[in-house]
Amino acid sequence: MSKVANHSPGRRIYSTRFATIVVWIITVAWTVPTFGLFVSSFRSKTDIYNTGWWHVFTHPSFTFANYREVLFGGGALSLGNGVLPYLVNSIVITIPSVIIPIAVATLAAYSLAWIKFKGSDFLFFFIFALQIVPLQMSLIPLLQLFTGGAHIGHITIIPAFGIAGHFAGIWLPHTMFALPLAIYLLHNFISSLPRDLMEAAHMDGANHFKVFRQIVLPLSIPAIAAFAIFQFLWVWNDLLIALTFASGTEEIAPINAKLASLVGQYGSGWQFLTAGAFVSIAIPLAVFFSLQKYFVRGLLAGSVK
């Protein structure tokens, strides 16, 4: 389709060469900052501070020392055990924070689309609207709930969960905040599945649980994949929830929170910051480039988060 269009007279009106040159200039400008930091992460401290990174083109000289020190610590500048524990925390935080909201949202989306009841349309509208509510609205009450439980007057309704400072205290907010977008995206997809398919299954005596397991879930994999990548990047790159619910300790804080605090500590400890930044963005970049197609599909399905 687009190939045909590109060669049609209508699309050739701007010279292709002009467009190509402009786009490539912008692309280079867009890439240079990342490239500069990447190159610097392999330069020694003396090199970083004495010459700009562009000198590598004339005087190439590289080292892995920055990465070794950032990952495992123990160097001159005491980074403790390095950022590796935080990288592990990021993985530990991310996996359940992606899987659990997907499961909850797929169920809800199916129900809203195919088990209609009075008010299910209203509920869908309401959840759609929740997408845009700033999560700042929830931070203080949720933190209180996690540390002190819920009370009306002197009566305790929900006891203190005791999950503040544990991974569960980060999984739960990520799950809660992911639901509006997840339900909306999955509802768009699941509600467009063919009605005949559902009706035929019900004719054969399948109940909703069976239809969900055997028809809806397998067919929804593309939509689930699209949202999963979205949610993965969101959780991995989040700072606000991490700062609020993980107290910055080596026990549970993710690498993003650690990096933010490193910037504060060593405002210009570039040998650490360069390597640290790349340690933290390597995994999302890999996911992004290998699954870009699904990610774009998720974006196009509509997201205003």
Binding site: T34, G36, N237, L239, V263, I281
Partner: peptide, 23 residues
């Protein structure tokens, strides 16, 4: 070019801040 301009979407604001702090 599309992938390269889209790429920063995968980078956290913290990572992006470090990249630009260096600039």
């Amino acid at each position: 070019p599309k992938a390269l301009i889209f790429m920063p979407m995968a980078i956290s604001f913290v990572g992006a801040s470090i990249i630009w702090r260096f600039v």
